[in-house]
């Protein structure tokens, strides 16, 4: 029964999100809207943590499994990667490096550079 309830909540959020994105012909991904809807339900206390856990915990635990097939799709684009590897390599290094330095500096500005613990 508890599995049924938690599954129903998750699927209902997904269904409402799909309906809304279709209604407004939005390109916004429906599962992300569903996630936001469910978060609002949790924050407002309409849905409680223990309502969700029975299904959400195992689903989240095995989530990596669900995107492996999509990841394997990379083999269809090896030509593109071979052609543009200098660009990909540059982005691979510069994007995380600039983000880490930016975020680290902003927080260190307010909280200090030293380890406060």
């Amino acid at each position: 029964m508890k599995y049924l309830i938690s599954s129903a909540i998750i699927l209902a959020c997904l269904a409402v999100a799909k309906y809304l994105t279709a209604l407004f012909e939005s390109s916004f991904p429906a599962p992300l809207l569903g996630m936001v809807l469910l978060l609002v339900l949790l924050l407002t206390g309409i849905v409680k943590e223990h309502h969700l856990k029975p299904t959400a915990s195992p689903v989240l635990n095995y989530m990596p499994l669900f995107f492996i097939p999509a990841g394997v799709g990379i083999i269809e684009h090896l030509g593109l990667i071979a052609e543009h590897w200098p660009l990909l390599l540059t982005i691979f290094i510069v994007v995380p490096l600039t983000s880490v330095i930016l975020i680290g500096s902003v927080i260190a500005y307010f909280k200090g550079r030293e380890n406060d613990s």
């Binding site: 599954s7 998750i10 699927l11 959020c13 997904l14 999100a17 429906a30 599962p31 992300l32 569903g34 996630m35 936001v36 809807l37 469910l38 978060l39 339900l41 949790l42 924050l43 943590e49 969700l52 856990k53 299904t55 959400a56 915990s57 689903v59 989240l60 095995y62 989530m63 499994l65 669900f66 995107f67 492996i68 097939p69 999509a70 394997v72 799709g73």
Partner: peptide, 25 residues
């Protein structure tokens, strides 16, 4: 391969909705 692993890809959608739980926590 993609066709026969669709079951897994479908489950990704409800799993993303479920991400609201750790987000809330």
């Amino acid at each position: 391969f993609a066709e026969h692993t669709k079951v897994l890809s479908w489950l990704l959608e409800p799993a993303i909705v479920a991400l609201a739980l750790p987000l809330y926590q």
